[in-house]
């Protein structure tokens, strides 16, 4: 028996919108502490890791650990039928090949049930090692999205370099080059507007902008984004989901041949 009631249903809608273009199918792993998802994109260049902890739900019941394979495109179609103010409940029964999404309007005058077929997904689960990163940049998520969008109009890859001067995003393409430098800026009215650079050692890495732009679909989930880099690891682009968990995107770098 599985029953999860999320008053802020729009959160689940936003989570799906942030990952559905990167990953087609994924196993949702439910346990008593919450649910998680880990999946690579089809070309095995990026990985998404989602965690939503049980504390964030108004009601959370999961009698035994269970994994449900879902097509994220189909799940997104169903969740789009929920209003932004709706309460969403996810229900499942042991051994069933379907999951039910229930949408309740805030005034309880409209209640909808959507039953979705589950699928068997043979997915690899990867061990992500704990790591000390050379540099961690925390910045407004909207600013990061703007930079990725702007640079993608010039080139295909972005070089992200962190030094004690700041963080530099660079690209080059047929029409020219672009460099955007952000300096640490903590003297802002609101903490979410700050750019904070923690640097143990300078680092410079190259990434495909196509993936970075896909990650920025998670911007509505959080005012800030954290970018963690070490030369021998995929970059981690993390959007925290207030009091509930996170969506993390891992992206393997491009290397000089």
């Amino acid at each position: 028996m599985l029953e999860l009631r999320l008053v802020q249903g729009s959160l689940l809608k936003k989570v799906l919108e942030s990952i559905k273009d990167l990953v087609n199918d994924a196993n949702f792993d439910f346990s008593s502490s919450g649910f998680s998802l880990q999946s690579m994109d089809s070309s095995h260049v990026a990985l998404v890791a989602l965690l939503l902890k049980s504390e964030g739900f108004e009601h959370y019941r999961c009698d035994r650990n269970t994994s449900m394979g879902m097509n994220l495109g189909n799940m997104s179609k169903m969740l789009k039928c929920a209003g932004n103010d709706d309460i969403i409940t996810i229900k499942g029964d042991d051994g069933s090949d379907t999951v039910t999404f229930m949408f309740e309007s805030p005034t309880q005058d409209k209640i909808a049930d959507f039953e979705m077929k589950l699928m068997d997904i043979d997915s690899e689960h990867l061990g992500i090692p704990e790591a000390e990163y050379h540099a961690i940049v925390k910045m407004p998520s909207a600013e990061f999205a703007r930079i990725c969008k702007d640079l993608a109009s010039i080139g295909d890859t972005v070089v992200i370099s962190v030094t004690k001067e700041g963080v530099k995003f660079s690209t080059r393409g047929d029409i020219g080059t672009a460099n955007i430098v952000l300096r640490q800026n903590t003297t802002v009215d609101k903490p979410e507007d700050a750019t904070v650079i923690e640097m143990n050692e300078p680092v410079s890495m190259t990434f495909a902008l196509r993936y970075m732009n896909s990650f920025t679909k998670a911007t509505p989930l959080s005012n800030t984004v954290t970018i963690s880099m070490s030369p021998d690891l995929p970059v981690v682009v993390e959007y925290k989901i207030a009091e509930m968990g996170y969506v993390r995107f891992y992206l393997a770098p491009k290397m000089e041949e």
Partner: peptide, 14 residues
Amino acid sequence: PCLQRKILDYFKDD
């Protein structure tokens, strides 16, 4: 010319 690395180059199967 840059070579796109894969996630599996860094993270291993559990």
